[in-house]
Design a protein around this nucleic acid. Structure first.
Lengths: 249, 249
DNA sequence: GCAAAAGTGTTAGAAGTACACCCATGA
DNA sequence: TCATGGGTGTACTTCTAACACTTTTGC
């Protein structure tokens, strides 16, 4: 499922990895997708897909996910977590997908089990580095509802989101992977709101973050906004881990 | 990874499923393992493994897990949930495992990615139906600490347990899959204690279950115990789902 | 009657929820 | 001076945690 050429032997043509990379622009969650161009019945079509590809023979799944994401988007040192394998035998039922893939892979493709990975990143990290070169684009989840992606990638993204919600409850620190190093209380709050899908009371929220020692208020404030400037905060991972250890014995 | 013969084409020799089936005997969690006999350097060895096998060509992963578990243990209609794929390339590093597998599969084996499934069941369900015929045995988690299983199956079980803890927080009803239809408060409490790994106060616990409408007290009590007889309870799934829907909007 | 496990209530502190107004800034 | 979003406190409810004795039963 990739556009570059392989210079190593594939494990086989049956196992792939796909990466759901999520970012947050201060208002919405967005997913990083690649543009795909194919030809079917003599007609050219354009659509999108998750970054993903078949794995090499001597490659751990985790390694494969990191490699593939790097090859397809240029991103490095991304924290990827495996969240689910997709192995329905009709995930390659659309001939369009199969033909596209066989052309890209230069070999016969039958059934593919894919192992899906999730990554939460600061959205500017990827945007700055010429995503256009890679034919990559951030797509908001709202926009996604009216897009049909390649293979079962719509399903994979849906499952990624339910995974995120659960995951975040156990590991709040994951949220801060989505925010810039300096962030305002409002940004953090709307991130909560997007992920949990409900409104959060402003006053209670301020009370809450005031109690979390690992959310450290800075002196610095917003500049040049047409209203009272918001204070910046930063996330202190060390303090977070200390507190986490205390709680869980 | 199985002992019976295949009468359908394998998807390939690179994808398998493994099932972690957990039961609860009133005191401890136990995992269902199969006895394995192999030969290495002319020496016969005996050890144990999870029920698991390679998948067929036209089989969903979920279907494969159900089929394999049935073939290897005789169990039917078991609720299986996929929890993680294991794809380290050194999970088949032990020649003992590779040789055993090649003999069982009657073909060359290279690298295998396995998709692991979890099932929580009433322990008597499997015990009654002649597990001995299948060379299967319930092994307590404590006992497991001093056993080295085939492949990376010790790791898979460890990951299954961390998954269970998280899973149960989101779906309490999973706990009742482990208990008999009628159970005492003490049984339920020690199940909580085993899974969360900490003591729970008896009085607070009674207060708690009294508030959960879906844990229904029965008139029936224990018989023939040398102390005050405990009341039986049952789990009402309908009431549970109703309450769950209310909570989550 | 004694050993063994079942069952029962109260209180204090922590955490969560609901709710409305003033503040700082740029245009 | 006004429009915009930022920031603050109090009262009430709910949840959690700590804690010790009486009841029932078989032997």
């Amino acid at each position: 499922m990739q556009n570059t050429l392989h210079n190593q032997p594939l494990a086989n043509n049956h196992i792939s990895v796909d990466c759901v990379v999520l970012g947050f622009d201060g208002e919405q969650l967005k997913v990083l997708l690649l543009k795909r161009m194919g030809e079917e019945h003599g007609e050219v079509f354009h659509d999108m897909k998750l970054p993903g590809s078949l794995i090499y023979m001597d490659e751990d799944l985790d390694e494969a996910a990191a490699r593939v994401l790097n090859e397809l988007t240029g991103m490095k040192n991304v924290n990827l977590v495996q969240f689910k394998a997709f192995g329905s035998n009709n995930r390659t039922k659309d001939p369009k997908d199969v033909h596209w893939l066989e052309r890209a892979m230069k070999q016969k493709v039958e059934r593919i089990v894919t192992v899906a990975y999730l990554s939460l990143i600061k959205i500017d990290r990827a945007l700055g580095k010429g995503l256009e070169d890679y034919q990559a684009r951030w797509v908001s989840l709202h926009e996604l509802q009216s897009l049909t992606l390649a293979f079962d990638h719509n399903l994979i993204i849906r499952e990624a989101l339910t995974y995120v919600r659960q995951h975040v409850e156990f590991n709040q620190s994951a949220l801060f992977d989505l925010l810039p190093r300096k962030f305002t209380a409002a940004q953090l709050r709307s991130l909560y709101e997007v992920i949990y899908g409900r409104r959060i009371d402003v006053r209670n929220f301020h009370k809450k973050i005031a109690m979390m020692e690992y959310i450290v208020p800075l002196e610095e404030k917003e500049q040049g906004v047409a209203h009272r400037a918001a204070r910046y905060y930063r996330f202190d991972k060390k303090l977070y881990n200390k507190q986490r250890v205390k709680r869980n014995g």
